[in-house]
Amino acid sequence: MALTLPPLPTSVVGSLPQPGWLLDHDKLAHQTPPRVRARELWRVAPELLEEAQDDATRLAVRSQETAGLDIVTDGEQRRESYSNHFATALEGVDVDQPGSVINRSGKPIPVPRVVGEIRRPQPVQARDVRFLRAVSDRTVKITVPGPFTMAQQSQDEHYGDGRALAMAYAEVVRAEIADLFAAGADIVQIDEPWLQARPEVARQYGAEAVTRAVEGAAGPVHLHLCFGYAAMVSERPEGYSFLPELADTPVDTVSVETAQSHLDPAQLRPLRGKGIALGVLDLSTPEVETPEVIADRVRRALDDVDVERLVLSSDCGLKYLPRESAAGKMRALAQAAEVLRGEV
């Protein structure tokens, strides 16, 4: 369907907090975001889990609509983390006997072991899109982990070459993107935080993997590039280590965080010509910003972006916030957008 959005449309990156009756937040808070399955996080019996996740998705959609957001997601209510839902659905990986990599905090974490050719036996999230499309008449966005990030979050025992592994992931992401648009998505977003976390490796083949995954997409693809969940990574760098490299990729919009990091918006200038989803909600605190504080965060970037292609967003996923805080922050974001639309 054609996108009909107002100026400065509002959205969140992807995730929203899951209800306490669905997911054990205490267990979630005391572990790094899982890269293999973490079924112990769910509080609902396996035979009732899909129905419960559907109900939570309805609540997540309503919370975005009630707040006044223009683009809605499914809140990633079916996921233990942003990446493992998709990554563990692929063939060629062993998640029962996982491998290990060092994460951005310098800690070893369990990850899928790649033991054969990466394949996608069937669409992973097409049903999620169809469900989202059925419960909302707004512009809908679905997220999927990017190929470079999944390659970095795995232990390769098959390809023996980092680029070959990333390109194998790019092929399955490319196929998934096609199915997500066919299922009714208006926007597909690939999440690529490890482009920022591993810039030296990313400069070798990160943009190539992204390009392969996105080329020929039937609709706009956004790329989320961040410093990690505020609940997990408290220290933010002063700038992005991998931004200009995205200028020549076919992604439509680049999603960046600026609130918690106080990013100098001049760093966004190399991406002129692309859309920017500007993260202006600080997720390191449950405190709800005023619309004026959020509007000021946007105003400081207006000279450095193409305003007609600017989306107002959260820094990252809201998964780790209290639900009331997430609702308040989304509402303040929508109110800030209303103020700014009268100015630009």
Score class of each variant (00 low, 15 high):
Leu310Arg: 03
Ile102Gly: 10
Leu268Ala: 04
Lys329Asp: 02
Gln77Gly: 12
Tyr159Val: 10
Glu289Leu: 00
Leu333Gly: 03
His85Asp: 06
Val210Gly: 01
Leu69Trp: 01
Asp161Trp: 03
Ala134Cys: 10
Ala170His: 00
Val280Gly: 10
Glu65Thr: 10
Val140Trp: 02
Pro250Lys: 10
Met232Ser: 06
Ser15Ala: 15
Gly239Arg: 14
Asp137Cys: 03
Tyr82Val: 08
Ala266Ile: 07
Val124Asp: 07
Leu23Trp: 08
Asn103Thr: 14
Ile190Glu: 03
Lys107Met: 09
Val288Ala: 05
Lys141Met: 08
Trp21Ser: 13
Ala134Trp: 09
Phe148Gly: 13
Pro286Val: 11
Asp55Asn: 07
Gly328Met: 06
Tyr82Lys: 08
Ser136Lys: 03
Ser11Gly: 01
Glu50Tyr: 08
Ala29Leu: 06
Asp315Gly: 12
Glu171Asn: 13
His224Cys: 06
Lys319Leu: 15
Ala266Cys: 06
Met232Ala: 11
Thr10Gly: 03
Leu321Lys: 09
Val114Tyr: 04
Ser81Ala: 14
Ala182Asp: 14
Val129Lys: 00
Thr88Ser: 04
Pro19Val: 12
Pro9Val: 01
Arg198Asp: 11
Thr249Leu: 01
Ser63Asn: 09
Ala230Asn: 09
Glu65Phe: 02
Pro9Gly: 04
Asp303Tyr: 10
Gln153Tyr: 12
Ser11Tyr: 00
Leu28Ile: 05
Asp26Tyr: 01
Ala2Glu: 14
His224Tyr: 02
Leu59Cys: 08
Gln31Phe: 00
Leu283Met: 15
Ala295Gln: 09
Val280Ile: 08
Ile187His: 01
Glu292Arg: 07
Ser313Tyr: 04
Phe131Cys: 13
Thr57Gly: 02
Phe227Glu: 05
Trp21Ala: 14
Glu51Met: 05
Leu243Lys: 11
Glu80His: 03
Glu51Thr: 07
Asn84Val: 11
Ser15Val: 09
Glu257Tyr: 05
Ala259Pro: 02
Pro7Met: 02
Glu176Val: 01
Ala182Gly: 08
Ala295Glu: 03
Leu340Gln: 01
Val144Cys: 06
Thr66Ile: 08
Gly216Gln: 15
Ala247Phe: 06
Glu157Trp: 07
Gln122Glu: 14
Pro265Glu: 04
Pro147Ala: 07
Leu8Gln: 08
Gln122Thr: 06
Phe242Ser: 07
Ser83Met: 14
Gln18Thr: 15
Pro145Phe: 02
Ala2Thr: 13
Ser314Pro: 12
Ala259His: 02
Asp191Ile: 10
Gly92Val: 12
Arg130Thr: 12
Ser11Leu: 12
Gly106Leu: 13
Thr66Asn: 12
Leu333Cys: 05
Glu208Phe: 02
Arg138Leu: 14
Lys107Gly: 05
Ala56Pro: 00
Gly68Met: 10
Arg39Gly: 12
Ala213Lys: 07
Pro265His: 04
Pro123Gln: 09
Arg113Met: 10
Gly342Met: 04
Gly219Trp: 10
Pro193Ile: 07
Leu69Ala: 01
Phe148Pro: 05
Arg272Leu: 08
Glu40Ser: 09
Phe86Asn: 09
Gln77Asp: 04
Pro322Lys: 14
